[in-house]
């Protein structure tokens, strides 16, 4: 009973550690790393559901009866590509953020964002007077 669901539980632990990193860490690269951990764990969820007891890889050959399910494999191939595309785009954004703000820590960026805003607010108030 328990062993049949064990794979899912492992996946849940992995996924949740990824999600935790995304939310809790301020470093943008760390966030992307967490994101890719999260995604890779979802891949494991899909792949482990495709396994059939005693099956082999879904390549047809003589004297093979039992095959694992090829459909999840196809889906995950697509999902891996999507994952790397997102990561690459995110990294490009990180480079630009580093150039624009001089930091890749979330807190620093928020502080820097608020500074000019308060300045402009002052300006606005002056203008109204």
């Amino acid at each position: 009973m328990i062993t049949g669901l064990f794979n899912n539980w492992i996946v849940i632990v992995l996924m949740m550690s990824g999600l935790y990193i995304v939310i809790a860490h301020g470093n943008l690269i760390k966030k992307l790393i967490g994101l890719s951990l999260f995604q890779t764990s979802v891949f494991i969820l899909y792949i482990s559901m495709a396994k059939v007891e005693g099956g082999t890889a879904p390549i047809l050959a003589e004297n093979i009866k039992e095959l694992s399910n090829p459909l999840p494999h196809v889906l995950i191939l697509t999902a891996i590509v999507v994952g790397i595309s997102t990561t690459a785009l995110g990294l490009a954004l990180v480079i630009r953020i580093k150039e624009a703000y001089g930091s890749i820590e979330e807190e620093d960026i928020q502080i820097l964002d608020n500074l000019p805003q308060s300045k402009t607010q002052k300006k606005i108030m002056d203008g109204e007077q």
């Binding site: 996924m15 999600l19 995304v22 943008l28 966030k31 994101l35 999260f38 995604q39 979802v42 969820l45 999902a79 999507v82 997102t86 785009l89 995110g90 954004l93 990180v94 630009r96 953020i97 624009a100 703000y101 960026i109 964002d113």
Partner: peptide, 21 residues
Amino acid sequence: ALWASFQYLIMGTIGATFILI
């Protein structure tokens, strides 16, 4: 704009991964 886009990327990807799950 860069920061907004990055936040959107994180949220959007989490959303998409949830849909995938």
